[in-house]
Design a protein around this nucleic acid. Structure first.
Length: 425
DNA sequence: GTCGAGACTTGGAAGAATGTTC
DNA sequence: GAACATTCTTCCAAGTCTCGAC
């Protein structure tokens, strides 16, 4: 429960607003007669147009340019360029993390263990929070002992995470080794609450597990930890980001999330290139869009982007089941009539094929609906996926219409990417 | 090194607009 | 064209991160 729940916001008057405009520009006129702006300033190094103080907690509230403005586009591009830069050096950074995991210096070991999670699981940095004023949510650096369960299964060690992240969204995930039995691995792969250790990272995982055993049991002074104690007790987001800057200029924890989200999309989309079912996927716009959405889905799972399940979800499922029953009845009747004397067999056979196709389509639709019930695809598309990857993929594979994946708002927001990327991006 | 102000990005909910089905 | 489903858009809270003061 949020500590400020139930508080009423005050009205924001012109007297609460500070305006920002160029020194040689005419400040906007206050539209309310008898009122005036609190102040007019000329901060050329900032992008905000106006700000006021929140009436509940006194925090700054800004008014910015829209996402479609060239200024925002430029900043968006810089964000993705930074992620691409990380992509070029991530191999070396992972080598440094590998050695840091085994460090005898506690701070170094903690920094690299946290980073290993941030890189693999795309967990947020986790700044300090004042739980008397804000909801009790955590990220990597602020994880507490009570959020972690260490265990073992037939493949080896397991690390289970269970905590509330941004917006009090539940994060439940068990990290484990990929089973040798490929059928079992494929089955577990479909479970969004299970993540496999990256290929080649098995030894590092064993070390991370050892580190975590130590971090959830004892602090550096040897005292036993309580469930409410911090796992990474010598770490803050600030010191972690300072360390990251030593590894690459401008690198922060957030960049790993952008990089891994875009990298995942790129990998998933380009599986189409030599996919055995390539023709089938590229047959219609609907099947190609489904392929794109499946790739987008993998990113949404990685970033834990969820949404409330529609209140009418169960009714909708029941309706779909009812609809399917109707088609099945029709199909059975058609099959029966095939055996009747004097029936137009060719016509009935054609009808049977059509009905079978309808059932298959219906089942696929239900499957998609169930899969996406609690998952939000839009957040990653808007914030984490380099739009140039999507633009290039659309151009490369059958000149697929970009409007199928980017609506009007996204096309405006990503104009810079549409102009820039060709099929070889 | 710590703290807090300041500036910006990321995020889901809700309502509006649009599409689909009967 | 009504009813319902889906997608788009807006809203603003909740994050991340930097920088300067102490």
């Amino acid at each position: 429960e949020h500590p400020k729940m139930g508080k009423v916001k005050g009205v924001i008057a012109p007297e609460n607003l500070s305006m920002n405009c160029a020194l040689d520009a005419c400040p906007p006129k206050c539209p309310l007669p008898g009122h005036a702006w609190q102040s007019v300033c000329h901060k050329e190094e900032t992008t905000w147009l106006a700000f006021y103080r929140d009436t509940i907690n006194g925090e700054f509230k800004y008014i910015f340019l829209s996402a479609g403005s060239s200024l925002k586009g430029q900043s968006d591009r810089e964000k993705f360029e930074k992620a691409r830069e990380l992509g070029k050096v991530v191999g070396n950074i992972r080598k440094k993390i590998t050695s840091g995991l085994r460090s005898s210096t506690s701070v170094t070991m903690q920094q690299n263990t946290a980073l290993w999670f941030i890189d693999l699981l795309a967990i947020r940095a986790g700044n300090e929070k004042d739980t008397a004023e804000e909801a009790d949510t955590v990220g990597c650096c602020s994880l507490r002992v009570e959020h972690i369960t260490l265990g073992r299964d037939e493949e080896g060690p397991t690390i289970m995470f269970n905590f509330l992240g941004k917006d009090s969204i539940e994060y439940k995930n068990t990290l484990k080794l990929r089973p040798d039995d490929e059928d079992k691995a494929l089955e577990l792969e479909d479970n969004p609450q299970i993540s496999f250790v990256r290929h080649g990272e098995e030894e590092n995982f064993a070390q991370v597990f050892k580190n975590m055993e130590r971090l959830v049991r004892k602090s550096d002074n040897g005292k036993a930890k309580k469930p409410t104690d911090d796992v990474f007790d010598e770490l803050t987001t600030s010191t972690l980001n300072q360390y990251l800057k030593e590894l690459m200029p401008g690198l922060t924890a957030k960049v790993f999330r952008t990089f891994n989200a875009s990298f995942t999309l790129d990998q998933e989309l380009y599986k189409l290139e030599d996919h055995p079912r390539k023709k089938e996927f590229m047959k219609t716009d609907t099947t190609q869009l489904k392929f794109y959405n499946d790739a987008n889905y993998q990113v949404a799972i990685l970033c834990n982007h969820s949404r409330a399940v529609s209140k009418t979800f169960d009714t909708q499922m029941e309706k779909m089941d009812g609809k399917k029953d109707e088609i099945v009845k029709e199909l059975n009747a058609a099959k029966k009539s095939l055996k009747e004397k004097g029936a137009d067999k060719e016509k009935i056979k054609k009808k049977i094929t059509q009905l079978e196709e309808r059932i298959h389509k219906h089942e696929t639709q239900k499957e998609i609906k169930q899969k996406l019930a609690g998952v939000a695809l839009g957040t990653s598309k808007l914030n984490y996926l380099d739009p140039r990857i999507t633009v290039a993929w659309c151009k490369k594979f059958g000149d697929f219409a970009l409007s199928k994946v980017f609506n009007k708002t996204l096309q405006t927001k990503f104009k810079w990417a549409i102009d820039e990327a060709d099929e070889n991006f």
